[in-house]
Amino acid sequence: MLTLQFVPYSEIEYISSVGRIRKLLNIAKENRIVLLEGRLKKEEEAELIKATMEEINKDFKGIELSVIYPNKKESDLFRKLKKGFVNMLLGDRQGLTIIGPASIVREIKKDPDKIQLFTEDDTRAKKRRKK
């Protein structure tokens, strides 16, 4: 059974970067797939990878991470400024971040606005079919 946990941006909005990473990583370590509204800052994504590496052991093999983000470029300067201003004030709530424990999610494919989650069960079934 797969458990998906939705995390609204408001839940991480007022937490420090370290706290955000801790919260998301703890959910993934409980074998749940995180669906975060919006995205982390680029530096936070790198910190999330660092924190993941620090926690790898015989039970926790790491994470699969993917971000779907609307790639639409604003041509209108006013809209561009407005978007930048809103992101600065409220955080980047656009898009969706998926964080899955590597023991459950083997691979996440993005193409670029469609997302496919390949789970460990899929892999086993594929191998059985090949046999």
């Binding site: 990878i49 993941t52 590496m53 790898i56 093999k61 790491g62 994470i63 699969e64 991470l65 590597a102």
Partner: peptide
């Protein structure tokens, strides 16, 4: 070293 999100 190569950057990865999982190591098994």
């Amino acid at each position: 070293p190569g950057i990865a999100t999982k190591i098994d």
